[in-house]
Structures are given as structure tokens and as C-alpha cells.
Design a binder for these strands. Structure first.
Lengths: 138, 138
DNA sequence: CTGACATATTAGGTAAATACTAATAAGATT
DNA sequence: AATCTTATTAGTATTTACCTAATATGTCAG
């Protein structure tokens, strides 16, 4: 519990982009990430190598894919994000602001703790953006 | 609104310690901070210089004091901490865990947003630790 | 007032994260 | 094969966050 590997905001952002592309036909290339993150390819490469060291991605011939553990972590962060957003909006916060704040903290909080909150607030099926919240346990 | 100067976790920790000593007879020395943070004096000095650059502390003859702006920021972080803690505990989280999590995010969220939550949850006068929550506006 | 001890500061070094440019290598396309 | 697009390597810079060792500045006991 709460023994998640520490990641940085940038690593989180890359993980989210990679996860969001999971169902697409083509794997994510360096240039794609470079465009989406507005960072030069060498910077992205550096970032991906760190995610590789942490066991979250695998790279082959320029293509990058999430490992099993990367997918798990991705899902946990997305769930954290949506639950936190829900909690904040339920307590009077503006949706846009809640989203930005959530982006900055969703990867810092262990999923187990957030999951407790999820149970407590009545397992809402959707976040304020209308996206599904699927409870995730590995 | 939400245009607070960015600080790091370590800067936050130092700010909190300095703020907690405000009412004491003697100002905080380098060794005191060094002891409380379990870091060597040169490391602390480095940290304090950054806080000085950000306008939060002033240093004179080895003594360090919070500036007006430093006190404001200190109070905002403390309030954020207590309100977030209250919110989390109210939603099923264990107090100790809520405290640790809050420490990691209280300095990342703008006070104005947190203040909205405070109003919404009925302006509780105490945090789960039993400490006063004083609404703070500059 | 002077030596000894405590404290502060400077200097210098290391490492990780976050960026960049420029150069090279490798692939793909025409 | 020549070109264009990507990927990778090499090298540089900044910020944060640490350290040790050396020096300077206080302070306090005698």
C-alpha cells in the first residue's frame, strides 16, 4: 500500500499521453509525444528512458509502449484524477480549476487512499467531465 | 488569483518551520533549521537563499525571519493543509494518511480555490487535529 | 582580552530532472 | 540513389538538492 514508484509531473504527463493512445492502431512515436508535449525529441527521449528505468514503458525501434505496470499506473492516475475532480467539484470548486489542480496532484497520492474516498462518496459512475470512473484494482 | 510564486516541497517545509517559530522569543538560526530538517547547514543556507529570492524571508547576521509576504504564504499553506485534511477525513480517509498527503499538496494549490471549499463545507472551526482554522485573506 | 567552541559562510563537488542545439544515424519514400 | 523524416547521441545549461572541507565570525569562559 502506497509504495508506488515516485514519478515527476513530466513523467506523469507522458504516461497519460501514452495511455490515452492505447487503443489506437499505431504506437506512439517520439515525434508524436514531442508534438503533444511541446518538447524537442531529445528531451522526450530522456523522459522515456526514465520511464523505462521505472518499468513503465518499453521501447523498440523508436516505438514506445506501456508495460503492464505502466498501464496499471496510468489507470490509477486517471482514476485518482477523476475522483479528486469529483470531490472538489462536489465541494464548490469550479470544474476547470478542479481539473488543473487535479493534474498537479493526481500522481502524488496513492491510489488506495483515493479509492477509500471513492467508496465514501458513493461510487459515482462519472466524473464532472462526464467520463466513466471505473474502479481499478490490480 | 492563483498567481502564487511556485515553491518546492523543501521550500515549503522550511517556510512552515519558520512560520511555526514566529511567536518565539528568539529568531530561528541556521542550526535550528538544520536540526529540524535533518539537513546540513550549507544545504539550508542554499534553501534560504532561494526563499530570499522569492521574497519570503530576510536574513541578517545569521538570523532568518519571514517577510510580510512570507507570513502570508505560510498562513495560506497552513490553512490549505487544514482544510484539505478536513475534507479528506470527512470523506473517509485515515487522519495520519490525510496529513501526509496534505503535506505533499498543500503548497501546490492556490489558496483561493481552497477557500471556496472551506465556505462550502460549512467553515469548520477546527481541523481533524483539533487545530483552529482561521480564514485568511490578504 | 584571549583561546576554545559554536555557528555561519564560502568553495567546490555530485546527482537527478528538465530543457536545448547540433550532429549523426537510420528509415522510408519517391 | 537522393531526399526527407525520424531517432539517437553528444554536449551544454539551469534548477533543486545534497554533501564535505575550509574559512570566517561570534560568543563565552576564564
Amino acid at each position: 500500500m502506497s509504495d508506488e514508484i515516485r514519478i515527476t509531473k513530466k513523467e506523469r504527463d507522458a504516461l497519460i499521453i501514452l495511455g490515452n493512445h492505447i487503443d489506437e492502431e499505431f504506437p506512439v512515436r517520439l515525434v508524436d509525444l514531442s508534438d503533444e508535449m511541446s518538447l524537442k525529441p531529445p528531451t522526450i527521449l530522456n523522459l522515456l528512458k526514465r520511464l523505462e528505468d521505472k518499468g513503465y514503458v518499453e521501447r523498440e525501434k523508436g516505438m514506445t509502449v506501456l508495460t503492464k505496470s505502466g498501464v496499471s499506473r496510468y489507470r490509477e492516475i486517471v482514476e485518482n484524477h477523476r475522483i479528486l475532480e469529483t470531490l472538489m467539484v462536489k465541494n464548490g470548486m469550479d470544474l476547470d480549476r478542479a481539473c488543473v489542480i487535479s493534474e498537479n496532484i493526481d500522481f502524488l497520492i496513492d491510489h488506495e487512499s483515493i479509492d477509500n474516498i471513492f467508496e465514501k462518496i458513493g461510487k459515482p459512475s462519472k466524473c464532472p467531465h462526464g467520463r466513466k470512473i471505473e474502479q481499478f484494482h490490480e
